[in-house]
Write a protein that binds this DNA or RNA. Structure first.
Lengths: 140, 140
DNA sequence: ACACAGATGCAACTTTGTTGCAAAATAATT
DNA sequence: AATTATTTTGCAACAAAGTTGCATCTGTGT
């Protein structure tokens, strides 16, 4: 784990600092999306709010994480699969938001369907947000 | 137009007030999505910020408008087609966000494609956000 | 015209996000 | 290993976005 984190940072030419390591660990631990607030809480407010913002921004720019749109005005961030090649833009994603536990995850193996747009429209990226019950919450 | 606005309000058992009428008009004029800030600006700050928030909240509850998830942490609102029946939940929407002009619109006539979820997952609602160039911005 | 319910505006506050700058930590160099 | 150069961090101050309680005003039904 430690090593995995360091590799990611090195590969992206980022210096290895406490906050970056800790935040990356969080993403690796919980395979799901995190909001800025989650991160602050789970790091025990050890890092300044500004640092968390900036760290997320850096990760976004480097393509280490991507952001997920939600309808309730909260931005979620999730780790990108590390086998993304150079040219990969994380364009097409299917995200699943569980209505019960609130967990959000990135369904990497579900393909984004083709969508027929009206004449004159050209698309560059498609995001799909699926709400429902996740595997774990569907047992009851 | 005046009449259309009043009909919508009456149908939803809402009293006809200045802010509600004006905000509904805005939505009808521009067939596209509006952010809270847009509304404040376009009404010339005539109404209190709180009133705008509350008005949008009421419209949301009544199902007159719906909210659109965006990746940049801004909530957009768009009018629901008024021919929505009672049982209609505005569940499945395709939204188009133009990368150039920023306009966001609700593609009502594009059907949301079926998505195959992994085992154990059940969905209740699917939203699709398409980024790209809209009809008007595609001319150049 | 009147009374009641509901909507508005104000003030104060919380939460969320941003910016500039000095201090501290990391990386590079010798 | 010590020193310098480069990044990153935390602080403070601020800006923007959103919420709440309450007194006042407005729209609606009688």
């Amino acid at each position: 784990m430690q090593e995995a984190v360091q590799n990611i940072l090195k590969k992206n030419q980022l210096s290895i600092t406490g906050s970056r390591v800790r935040i990356l660990e969080l993403f690796l631990e919980q395979q799901g999306a995190l909001a800025h607030g989650d991160i602050e809480r789970r790091t025990g407010e050890k890092f300044d709010r500004v640092t968390v913002y900036r760290t997320l921004q850096v990760f976004l720019n480097k393509g280490i994480i991507h952001s997920i749109p939600t309808s309730d005005n909260s931005v979620l961030y999730a780790l990108c699969k590390d086998d993304c090649g150079e040219g990969h833009h994380h364009d097409n994603h299917v995200h699943f938001v569980c209505d019960k536990c609130g967990n959000t995850l990135c369904l990497e193996d579900v393909t984004v369907p083709a969508i027929r747009l009206p004449k004159g429209y050209k698309f560059s990226q498609i995001q799909v947000i699926v709400n429902g019950r996740c595997k774990d919450c569907n047992r009851d």
